[in-house]
Amino acid sequence: MAKKHKPNNVLPGFNLSLGYTLLYLSLIVLIPLSAAFFKTTELSFAEFWHTVTTPRVVASYKLTFGASLFAAVINAIFGLLTAWVLTRYTFPGKKLVDALVDLPFALPTAVAGIALTAVYSTNGWIGSLLEPLGVKVAFTPLGVVVALTFIGLPFVVRTVQPVLEDLEAETEEAAASLGANRWQTFSRVILPALWPALLTGFALAFARAIGEYGSVIFIAGNMPMVSEITPLIIITKLEQYDYTGATAVAVVMLIISFLLLFAINGLQWWSSRRNSASRGT
């Protein structure tokens, strides 16, 4: 107690709790993660660059990012729709639907993977309906999109829903009393208020999709250059005991994930500031 960090706070336990937090964080997260970066120093930059830009790896980036982006866009549109329907309308079974939206958070990814494969393969419930139309989902890049849509589904719904619930009915009434029709009110008044939350949900779904492994490998077919995602490349290299190669690809993914994390934090800060600014004064 000789030296207090802040004289105006009298609560005990600061040193203990912060010390433990930092220790545990370092042991479980920071030191292990730094191992990946240390490992890549075994490679020269040219070797590193070569490893992470071979055609097969580049094809996997394209698939991973392309499919993640596609899935995140689907989730942004239908997530907004779902959030809207759940906050604005009543229909039978609404509470159950609301609870089930979180299923992708709770369902193990491997289970999701085999379930989606069963449903979307050519003899599955949905796959068999799509086949006559010439659409194949399972074991194609489209299957990757389906799996990534599944695992990103709750993000947009759960970020948009609370904002939609908090919107004042008065604002919409004001727009109506000024002569705006329902579509004008939605596009000019409601949607702008939802943008930060929508974008945050989109970014979260996108970030989650990029790293996803379990649900994808069952439905993707995993054909090199066609339907092989980047996390699978890492696993393949590991199984061949190519630790440095696996780590090099992992480092590329880590850097991208960290950039996304910072972008998401920025977005959340922006949206909370926008929402709180109007409450004050």
């Binding site: 292990p32 993660l33 191992a35 990946a36 490992k39 970030a207 990029i210 790293g211 996803e212 492994y213 379990g214 996390p231 699978l232 890492i234 696993i235 590991l238 630790y243 696996a246 780590t247 992992a250 993914m253 880590l254 994930s257 960290f258 996304l260 994390l261």
Partner: peptide, 13 residues
């Protein structure tokens, strides 16, 4: 933000 596969990898390293 870390892919689960990478989470496993770092402990292997």
């Amino acid at each position: 933000a870390v892919s689960p596969v990478i989470a496993g990898l770092i402990f292997v390293l």
